[in-house]
Amino acid sequence: NGDTSPTVSMAELDHQVQLISKSHLETCQYLREELQQMSWQNFLQDEVESYQSKPREVMWQLCAVKITEAIQYVVEFAKRIDGFMDLCQNDQIVLLKAGSLEVIFVRMCRMFDSQNNTVFFDGKFAGPDVFRALGCDDLISSVFDFAKSMCSLHLSEDELALFSAFVLLSADRSWLQEKLQVEKLQQKTQLALQHVLQKNQREDGLLHKLRCKVSALRSLCSRHTEKLSAFRAVYPDIVGTHFPPLYKELFG
């Protein structure tokens, strides 16, 4: 009937928060404690130089593999979100194709060390210089800036889980067939996010700050697509034969 404003009780919201937090923790690839234990492991200068001296296509392939691994966890997260698997298959694919990399960027703040400006990559914490061989310093720098800015919000795991689900369930993606269903799910998730922010006694403007992150995420993802197109124009065979098939499906 066109009404997308669900009436949800506090108990339902609590339940929703619990479910999404559980799904997030089950699929987040690394637990905070694990990352904490590895936080002292930074790449040594000769290791940094070894990444920098890799051929461009080898470094691109390595990053494509790492992104693809992370995407598989995001797919599992999506599957465990209440209502996601009730959407039509077209819309499940549309949401993941558009949103999986965005969720990876959101999740990245868990693996980011703001003090050292490093991120967990390939077994240790890496600064932006590790990625120099990719030939996309501007994009890498923006990704690090985004992670730093997300970290500064100090989101708890349940807040991060709800925000990730909110991003994934964006109802304004192109090619959705049952937009209304997605809108309902996203609104329910936003209510749960508001609920958890209030419950955790977070500052009033935090939801607004998170909403602003959505446009930053879209910009990062479109710039990733541009960089991939530029790379593929030079190395079409590398992408065709050496990149993970799932990565090509989503970004090709």
């Binding site: 797919v75 599992e76 298959q89 549309v94």
Partner: peptide, 17 residues
């Protein structure tokens, strides 16, 4: 879309472990 995203579709079909 399903035809162009066979791996993603397969991952979605696999039961949650």
């Amino acid at each position: 879309l399903k035809e162009k995203h066979k791996i993603l579709h397969q991952l979605l079909q696999n039961s949650t472990s």
